[in-house]
């Protein structure tokens, strides 16, 4: 079993590629891998509680982890309580820790 770290930087409304990444992440979880999705830059926009297209829900329901960059949230005026349930704010240090632990890291 591997641990995958997916850094999602794209706005879900700007590109449907984000949906494809979410599908990939979900399939990795289904295959028994550990997956952490770290939303960053405009990637955090899709994590707002009111967002219609929250792509990462099914992956999270199956045990995947969804984090949102605190800095990107602050830049966009999104408070922690305004996030979709299951999304946790996190500092960039988490990315460094996960990289150091040997995660397979994908930037999107």
């Amino acid at each position: 079993m591997s641990h995958y770290l997916v850094l999602e930087s794209r706005d879900c409304l700007e590109s449907r590629d984000s949906k494809k990444m979410a599908t990939l992440a979900e399939e990795l979880v289904q295959a028994g891998h550990q997956v952490t999705v770290f939303l960053i830059q405009n990637g955090v926009l899709g994590a707002r509680s009111g967002a219609v297209d929250f792509f990462w829900g099914e992956m999270a329901d199956r045990g995947g982890e969804v984090l949102a960059d605190e800095f990107s949230l602050r830049e966009r005026g999104i408070p922690a309580q305004g996030l979709h349930p299951g999304v946790e704010p996190a500092s960039l240090d988490r990315v460094i820790d996960l990289m150091a632990s040997g995660c397979k890291v994908i930037w999107h």
Partner: peptide
């Protein structure tokens, strides 16, 4: 692109953590 800023932030975070 914001990717450059993010890259600088990542490099700084890595250095601050001692890598």
């Amino acid at each position: 692109n914001a990717r450059s800023t993010t890259a600088f932030r990542l490099i700084e975070a890595a250095l601050r953590k001692g890598f």
